[in-house]
Design a protein around this nucleic acid. Structure first.
Lengths: 222, 222
DNA sequence: GGCTTAACATGAGTCATCCTCAGGTTAGCG
DNA sequence: CGCTAACCTGAGGATGACTCATGTTAAGCC
């Protein structure tokens, strides 16, 4: 493992060279954007590094100067998605502090749904969580770890954002675990909701909310 | 799409030639078993058709005589897993008819957990549901459909197996939808449970049951 | 400007993998 | 034995991930 010493939380694992110059930074972002576009167009298995390079108008070698391999590229995009989602949560919960479990769930799911509708590649990637594409090849193990990390990160942030809601007889760890379970479950159900309807099946989205409210009601008050 | 006319429910889509002779049937099963073994050893992304052929001691061409492509091979295995799970449910619910939502959930999850612990490849594949590896390449679209089919099949079977539990003011379709949501959610949470602990994290398995009971309690009585 | 050195950029080429298909083998039959 | 049809086989074509030798630019120094 000759990974550079990077903070895992920032999702930079597998990154080969961080862009230092303005020109490089632009290329880096462009590659990531093209990657997201192509994921929407051809899906994960259809994604080729050559196609990314071509559309981003950079030689293939440049892609591999930033990203150790294809997985690292996709992972960097997932990390960006995660950061985006966390930012949205912080803002929304700051604007209208939730007064009940329903509020917490409504806001989180609404933001997630909005991202799926508008953010290129988000539907295919999510945060890289729950997918089978990672744990496969031994070399990709770090990706799995990061997926778990990402879900844990969201759960932790959700907990710190809604401390006043935690039931008094539930420990912090217990609440965080419940949130992690909720994350994973919601992710799967929403995946289902978007499978039939590209805008997300309204009925399934509603069911997803009911699922979370019913479960989290045991840990949260209100 | 030059797929042969096959019953989708039997999971034979993408199958090229169904084995007719005893000798062929043995080879067919052996290929599937080796595929399951290798999935456990090298994961999904690490699976190669050449390795399957070599370990099954058949020439590569023979693999492609039975299966249209690599996806079809993996899919056939997922279908076999599904059938296995359904058989187990029928048997268990027949032996000890569930008297409450808790019973239904307990039995289903216990069987699922047992399969994950004992059935080669099941941990990687599940029923092929909820994975990203399918919807990718346009040619693989039928796989996605079958995944959805598989989940629907389990949901439908679960409903018919536990009719007496359905709440009177919930329609059949509504109950089936709820079961499908529950399936998808449970799948994801159990995936999480087995990610850290190869035998399945007991705490997470318990949480999974709580999740389902809390949600399905709205549709089921008892 | 010249010279040296290091960082960066490039894309033709290497290697692994999926899948095909022309040719070979076996089996059935008169 | 000759003929046909079904079945079997694995070398090779096509594609795609990734490398690395070579070319280019920038930086420091006199």
């Amino acid at each position: 493992m000759e990974t550079t010493t990077e903070s895992a939380a920032s999702g930079a694992a597998g990154l080969r060279r961080r862009p230092m110059q303005r020109r490089s930074a632009e290329r880096y972002e462009r590659i990531l954007n093209v990657c997201a576009e192509l994921l929407d167009e051809v899906g994960f298995a259809g994604l080729t590094t050559t196609a990314v390079a071509k559309r981003a108008e950079v030689p293939i070698g440049t892609v591999y100067q930033f990203f150790a391999d294809k997985s690292a590229l996709v992972h960097a995009l997932a990390a960006r998605n995660l950061q985006n989602f966390l930012d949205r949560l912080v803002r929304r919960y700051g604007e209208t502090p939730p007064g009940s479990v329903e509020d917490v769930v409504d806001i989180a799911i609404d933001e997630f749904v909005d991202m799926r509708r508008t953010l290129p590649g988000f539907g295919v990637l999510d945060f890289g969580a729950g997918s089978k594409w990672s744990e496969a090849d031994p070399r990709d193990l770090y990706l799995l770890d990061d997926s778990v990390e990402n879900n844990t990160a969201v759960a932790r942030r959700l907990r710190t954002l809604t401390p006043f809601l935690a039931s008094s007889d539930a420990g912090e760890d217990q609440v965080e675990l419940a949130l992690r379970v909720a994350m994973e479950a919601a992710d799967a159900v929403l995946q289902l909701a978007f499978r039939s309807d590209p805008d997300g099946d309204a009925g399934l989205i509603a069911e997803c909310k009911k699922l979370l409210v019913a479960y989290l009601g045991q840990y949260y008050v209100g």
